[in-house]
Structures are given as structure tokens and as C-alpha cells.
Design a protein around this nucleic acid. Sequence first.
DNA 1: TTACCCATGTAAAGGGTTACATGATTTT
DNA 2: AAAATCATGTAACCCTTTACATGGGTAA
Lengths: 171, 171
Amino acid sequence: MNTQDVILGLLCKEPRSGYDIKQHFEQYFSFFFDASYGTIYPTLTKMEGLELITKESIRQEGKPDKNVYTVTEKGKEHFREYLERAAEPELLRSDFLMHLYFGDMADPEAMNGIIRRALEEKKRMYDDLEDKYRKLDSVTGPYQKLCMELGLVQYKAFIVKLEEMLGKSGD
Amino acid sequence: MNTQDVILGLLCKEPRSGYDIKQHFEQYFSFFFDASYGTIYPTLTKMEGLELITKESIRQEGKPDKNVYTVTEKGKEHFREYLERAAEPELLRSDFLMHLYFGDMADPEAMNGIIRRALEEKKRMYDDLEDKYRKLDSVTGPYQKLCMELGLVQYKAFIVKLEEMLGKSGD
DNA sequence: TTACCCATGTAAAGGGTTACATGATTTT
DNA sequence: AAAATCATGTAACCCTTTACATGGGTAA
């Protein structure tokens, strides 16, 4: 899975601009995928060259022009191939867990702060995701909902465990 | 957090070779960090140049020579600075969740297979991690254990949710 | 008037993986 | 006889982020 596959998937649902794509990443994918404008725009140009998508410049009133991309038949076929491929193994990179792992080398006070901050951060992410979940429109399919539910239960488990940890060590 | 920081942390505990470091990554960090030999060896060379570590060649019987690296005072100081820095935000990249998100565009049979495989894979990872957890020696500090416990509860939450999903859709 | 939203793009640098190359010893 | 373990290293490539560049409209 790379940015190209994901963009292709979004454009299979409806035509979008690079800016719209980034918005969608932030709204719905933020907890398991992200890409910056520095990746999105060059990728769109590349995909146009490969004839996976076509560009149309739209003039807007009171806003800058936007380039709206539409997937081609070739692009749809590419995405179908992606969907059929076995999913790549999940990748997690957690600097918090690394800090925790080496916790005995740090000042206990500092570690406490790090754990507390991680907990606050996770709670914030949980609330954010829950908020997005509640705001899902009726058009949203069951699979999208399941995605978010999977995110929520994992966040929750993390939060519960961390709170249990902090509780045990007094405070 | 980059590979250099993590290597520094490990070498602060005891001198190790590149090979040993990779073993440790696989044993204890696999669920929240990894790096290949193609990163580890060049990084060690670079770190030696920066005088964060020193190299010693050890001749072994029946095995190839190994380069054992020891952290310097400068290296320890670097690692202390890393530990004091606020943890970077967690990064998850899940191709399974991406497949799931676009599930309505795929064949329902194929989706079922993808979900089943994801569940089996997670269960395998859970069992692996639990096995490592049970085998932890008495020397292992409480922080290392907490790391693994956090991994376990999140895996568990994912498994429970996925099984609930599969159960609901009959079969 | 400051800041944020909309909108697109480029260049440099960073950080990483995969594949290749080598080779002895031990286990199956 | 084959495969796994121990052990190190390089080169090519891939993908990505960050910082920079630009600029009009709108909300606080």
C-alpha cells in the first residue's frame, strides 16, 4: 500500500482535488494512514502520466482554481488489483513505548510526565475519533464504520491499561 | 526517534554487536519498532564516526568474528537527551484497515477472506507476544513488562472486535 | 490586522528497505 | 545434501517529509 493506491481508492468513489484528498485523509484515515501535500501533488501528476486518472481545471468564485481528478478505467482496474492483493503487515512505530521501555534509565518524575502526556494524547485521539464516528452520515457504509470501531476499541484498551498503571503506582 | 536513538539505548544497557541488536529488535520491539541490517550496520559505522560508540573486534571459535560496540560518555549523554525529549506522535500504517475501508468495492467473499486472515495474523502476533511475556526473566524491569502489556491489551481488543464482527455476519 | 482557509506545487534532504555479496558452522 | 544460524557489509532504489514559494478571500 502506498499513497497512489489510496488516492486511487478515493477517486473510485468520486472525483476530487489534491486538497480534497488531503482533507479526507485527515478526517477518516488519520489513525491508520497519512500523506502530506508534498506526496499527494507529485503523486497525482505521476498518476496522470500513467493514465490512471485525468485532470480537469475548475474555476471557482472567491476561491483559487482547483484541479479535479477523475479515475480512468485503467485506474479502476489498478485499484481492483490492489484490493485483491493480500494486505501488507501492519506497521506501528511508537516513540512513547520506546521511552517507556527505557523508563528505568530516566528520572521517575520525568517518566510520570511522559506517561501522563501519552494518556492525555490518547484520550484526545479517542474523543476525536468518537466525534467523527458520531458524525458519520447515513451514506457511510458498514465497512467504514467497522474501521473506526476497530480504532476505538484499541484506543480504549490502551487508555484503560495506562490508567490502571497510574492508579497502581499511587499519586 | 530514529534507529540511532534506539541502538544507543540498547548499548547503554550492555555492549552488543549489530547482529545482537537486530535479535533484540525482533524479540522485544517487533510490535512497535523495527530496523533491517541494511540500516543497523551503516548506522553503527556512522555512530562510531560521531564518537557515540567504540568498536571492538571479537574473535570467536566456530563462529565468525563479531564487532562489539560499547557506548561512550558522549553517547550516554545523547541518549539522556533523547529520553528527555517529548515522545513523537505514534504512527500506525495498516493496509488491512485500508482494505476494510474500501470493502464495499470488493467481492464479499474476498473481504471475508481478508478479515479472516487479519484475525489469524493478529492471533498469531498475540500468542507470540504473550509467549515472550511469559518468558521474561526476573531481571526484566517493570517498564519493559508494561510495554508488552500495552501491546497485549490492544491486540486483544482488536481480536475481540473482529470476532464479534464475524460472528454477527453469521457462519 | 492577524490569522486561518483555500489551493497547488517544487527541491532538498532524510530515513528507510531490498537485494546482493560473502562465507563458515551446525542442525535436520 | 539442504537449510538454518551466525555475522557483516554495500548499493540502488523508494517513499516520504519538511521547508519553501505563491497568493486571494474570509473570519476574528
